[in-house]
Design a protein around this nucleic acid. Sequence first.
DNA 1: AAGTAAACGAGACGGTACGTCCTGTCTTCTT
DNA 2: AAGAAGACAGGACGTACCGTCTCGTTTACTT
Lengths: 212, 212, 212, 212
Amino acid sequence: MRTVSEHAASPPSGRQAARKGRPHTGRRRNEAARQAILEAALEVLARSGTATMTVDALAAAAGVGKQTIYRWWPSKGAVLAEALTERAATEVADPDSGSVIADLEAFLVATFRNLRVPAVATSLRAVMVEAQSDPGTAEVLAQFTTKRRIAMRRLLERGQRRGELARQADLDLLVEQAFGFIWYRLLVGHAPFTRDAATRLVRGLVTQAKAP
Amino acid sequence: MRTVSEHAASPPSGRQAARKGRPHTGRRRNEAARQAILEAALEVLARSGTATMTVDALAAAAGVGKQTIYRWWPSKGAVLAEALTERAATEVADPDSGSVIADLEAFLVATFRNLRVPAVATSLRAVMVEAQSDPGTAEVLAQFTTKRRIAMRRLLERGQRRGELARQADLDLLVEQAFGFIWYRLLVGHAPFTRDAATRLVRGLVTQAKAP
Amino acid sequence: MRTVSEHAASPPSGRQAARKGRPHTGRRRNEAARQAILEAALEVLARSGTATMTVDALAAAAGVGKQTIYRWWPSKGAVLAEALTERAATEVADPDSGSVIADLEAFLVATFRNLRVPAVATSLRAVMVEAQSDPGTAEVLAQFTTKRRIAMRRLLERGQRRGELARQADLDLLVEQAFGFIWYRLLVGHAPFTRDAATRLVRGLVTQAKAP
Amino acid sequence: MRTVSEHAASPPSGRQAARKGRPHTGRRRNEAARQAILEAALEVLARSGTATMTVDALAAAAGVGKQTIYRWWPSKGAVLAEALTERAATEVADPDSGSVIADLEAFLVATFRNLRVPAVATSLRAVMVEAQSDPGTAEVLAQFTTKRRIAMRRLLERGQRRGELARQADLDLLVEQAFGFIWYRLLVGHAPFTRDAATRLVRGLVTQAKAP
DNA sequence: AAGTAAACGAGACGGTACGTCCTGTCTTCTT
DNA sequence: AAGAAGACAGGACGTACCGTCTCGTTTACTT
């Protein structure tokens, strides 16, 4: 997986193109520190919410100097966002059973289950909050959400190709309705992420997608 | 409309009940200051987003002491929420043309037009951010969003009663899909609130609602 | 005694002249905090030298927010310099026995005794160091040293008026030789501030001052 | 002249003695780098004073890795001290005209002229500052100042032997008064190193030294 | 009219977190 | 092995806000 930090590390490689013969000088990035920071981010957040999620606490928990954080990430939120992205990639699969309904249900049920974990919900909320005032976080969040939308869209496209969904179904709209529903519940908090809610959402989306 | 500040102002009234014979002493609340604060809140926010929305800046912009803010509101977010609620009450219509499609389109086109005003979008984002950490703001936001959901639901119910929508259509789901779509775009910012987007959203919702 | 902080507090009074009718608004400076900071400065420094003399430690020792320090002093060094100035005023007297030799000896013996106290020597060194890179401290140090030079000069002037010293004696030169000797020993540390050293210095200065 | 870096460089030579048959392995010390560092030290210092005199800046200015500095010198101040010592050795003369007054005047006028060069004054201040917290620098400074005191003392001794100065004149005191005067002006900065100041100082010292 | 009490603009206060800077050490690749 | 480059842990810096706490003034009601 291509991470943000790999991207952040790319400028030196970029300079490589400019100055031939100097592919890299100096100590390399410490991968252990990177991992420690990402893990500490989730742990600190889980420990007691947004309040204790300070850069100092993060650095201390990771056993790292603050500068090492600021060297590779534009902000606290960007760290968090990357930590989330990395975990999401390993946790949410891309089901392919041959039936859109089943796939969509699997996808959303798994997502909802994930969101019932308080630490996950808190993390996502925190990233969204940061993104509203910090461009660095906003960018990482944009990448994260885009990746998720693409994942669901691909799932739907398979169903459409198989003729399970109407040819003229507006897949992008469906995807935005689905993730909109999720984030809205996550942020407004008026209703929980029950299994039943997932099922109803699937039924609604499929109904819309099948109609000619 | 019962505002937060009226609620916040109640303790003095509470003391009144406790100590008979002393209905009120001292200077009364300065209504001009209240207005100045609410207006300044929107203005400061519009000026340059969530970042500069500090209590000091708000107080300075309103020409008011900080204590005057903290005397009447529990938090910055509460001020903002009240400012928004007060304005929203005057701006939102409830169209009733006899056709759900027309009504829904009117409702959403108006909403989208509103969200294209930068100051409005910024304000809503700020309230949402504030609500994630401040319970007072969260409550106001909950009231606000509930009111909006009810408004759209009523609109849909009229259509359902008239037989325009399927009897078994999941109206609550439709409402959450709609507002989810809106808030998701507002917060992630990956796509604008074009008129076309509103139309597509209406079409999707109606398709889903009409299917048996 | 007019202190630096009083001076620093003067801008508001200065504005008073500009805007009539507004002699002062808002909470006044907390004199207790000022005292606590000055005392903490000496205490922290005495505790373990220049190393622990950080602004955070100073603030913590005084039970004060960092901002309260930065509000009234341009830098750490300026605090220290003021603390020293304030103490010096109370500790070093202006002897007047009728004999320059006796007075000068009293003055220098007292000064040397003071400099044998490690905390005092450390403080003076620290201020001198700060003054080399921080203009704020430099100014306060200049005031401090000027005051001390004036004190010694007045002592010598009395002797000159009484005819004890040659009329053409270069008093400013004598003063700079004396304080030069002191600071040189303090900073280079090649020899201690013994009583005998004080006596020799007095003899040398008087010899020079009496010669026609 | 035995320099600090020669001393610092001795451990490798020490290892040479220990392990016979392996007189030296690997690359030898780069003399060009040593020179570059010493020159950069003076240049960086002259550029804008003590504030910008950081190890990173020094390394960058010398086109050298930081480790190369730390490999050969115990501290920043030691570099500076060596740079200064090296230069001073070439610049200071020991006048011997046959007259103490003339010699002393020549010595001090030359010294004052040197101190009017901003880069020289800044460097000396920096070393003095560094010496207050770094023992290595303190030692080098002690050597430097001792050497200067001895130079002046020798000058005075010649005069005393020739009978130009009183036999009981306290030469050490005179020397400390002279250098005290100089460092005091250098560090407090209340008055410049004019030619007239040098002359007055000479007159004062000679007056004191001639009196019986 | 005098007294009393609350609200007000102003701004200082104790705290907390921020993002930057520097130090002295460690790591990588080159000479 | 020494060098240039530069990442690392650690820790101080000076700034920005927060929510609270005085100040002296203004306004309104009660005697």
